[in-house]
Design a protein around this nucleic acid. Structure first.
Lengths: 229, 229
DNA sequence: CGATGTTTTGAGAGGATTCAACCACAGTGG
DNA sequence: CCACTGTGGTTGAATCCTCTCAAAACATCG
């Protein structure tokens, strides 16, 4: 367990809490807990009632829904600075997604009552949360349109570009995220085999290069055109 | 133009404003305007900057996004009591969807600054808006998963059930909404011809009966099973 | 090294789209 | 009054994309 001082610094370091007053930050810090999770740990599950939300301090999580045949649909990723689970807290409803780490992660647990109090008391903080939610909603609607109208090939190109933008690249130009082919398929909304075949085609067309799970986008502009962006 | 008294009653009649204080309601009423729209009128368009949001008093609108080839994807419908466009107002960003009447409608225009002021000042009102947004987000994510994983047949059954639940039925058990086959296709995310073929099949299987644009769900439980619900 | 999970490739089936033609109907204008 | 036009609905046939199933290659780890 970290000491009070460390927790305060962590809270202050994340943009989402920049609108809090000093005493609000104090209150938040006092009632929060830090947790470490190794890879592939589920933080909360669909239909779980959760007693608070989580601020990602380090690591990455996938947020997904499970379809009726058990296949997971990855909705988005959560990265440092992101707050997850607050939808469920503020609506006082069970979670509608599952949150699972894809790397070792450090999370900051915020109890429901504190979050609700801050939301109601601090209009600027409420506005921040609202904007985040609206942004998510917009992205969800955009992606819904894409899945409904684009081909798997187009969507895969689009997903690769999104990953590139969200995670950046390492020193060898590989996207800084490690996903299985199945996870890629679960973002795109297709079968694992389709992803594999299309990745090979992209490679043959010199749009990308691949090394295991690491992917390097060689031709952003062609990929963008292919994705219909 | 309606007189002040009428506007006040209209504002008070909608659940979303039930948390407003008397003076807040007064302020809201003073700065709002009522508009009438005939069928197929666009209220705002994707990428439009809008100067306020709209409360639906009467009528129905479709909210859609336009895909890169011009095909529209219907995201949802807005009905009396619904507030539309506030995402854009609160985020101070262009609209990401188009709102278009599918019936004669009466809308209540609320200027941006008033909405933002109410949101920041009244925590309960902010909470109401937040909950609505979270609900929309959840629905969007659920539908995203469905579109990515279900067949067109399953999705059409699901859409029919949603329409049934959202719009109810008239005295002859027909769903109280009139959509073209193309609009149905634009909800399901498929081609018009596919909708037509599947509706015929549903009819042959005695799951529904059809009279022009009016649809009657004859076997809710079979349709639910078919939809995977 | 065996064991398990992941990736790859092939072949076949099936679902959905596209293109095309045709019909019904309402509104228009000569 | 009737041809003309446009929109919406329907049906058929061919094509193509995508999925499923199956098997094999590969990797990773204790």
């Amino acid at each position: 367990m970290l000491v009070h001082h460390d927790k305060t610094n962590i809270v202050r370091s994340h943009a989402i809490f920049k609108n809090l007053l000093t005493e609000e930050t104090e209150k938040l810090v006092k009632s929060c807990t830090i947790f470490n999770y190794s890879r592939n740990k589920i933080i909360y599950n669909e239909s779980n009632h959760i007693s608070g939300c989580y601020l990602i301090h380090e690591g990455t999580l996938k947020i997904y829904k499970t379809g009726y045949d058990g296949k997971e649909q990855i909705i988005r990723f959560a990265k440092p600075g992101d707050l997850i689970g607050f939808r469920s807290v503020l609506s006082n409803e069970p979670a509608c997604t599952t949150a699972e780490t894809i790397q070792e992660s450090i999370l900051f647990f915020i109890p429901s009552d504190i979050l609700i109090e801050l939301f109601k008391m601090n209009g600027n903080f409420a506005m921040s949360l609202m904007r985040i939610t609206c942004k998510e909603l917009e992205e969800a609607n955009t992606y819904l349109t894409d899945v409904a109208q684009k081909t798997v090939r187009e969507r895969l190109a689009e997903v690769l570009l999104h990953l590139y933008k969200d995670f950046g690249v390492d020193e060898s130009q590989f996207i800084r995220v490690s996903l299985t082919r199945e996870e890629l398929a679960n973002i795109v909304g297709t079968a694992t085999e389709s992803v594999i075949r299309l990745l090979s085609e992209f490679k043959d067309d010199n749009l990308i290069s691949i090394s295991g799970r690491k992917i390097n986008l060689l031709d952003i502009s062609k990929l963008s055109k292919l994705a219909g962006i």
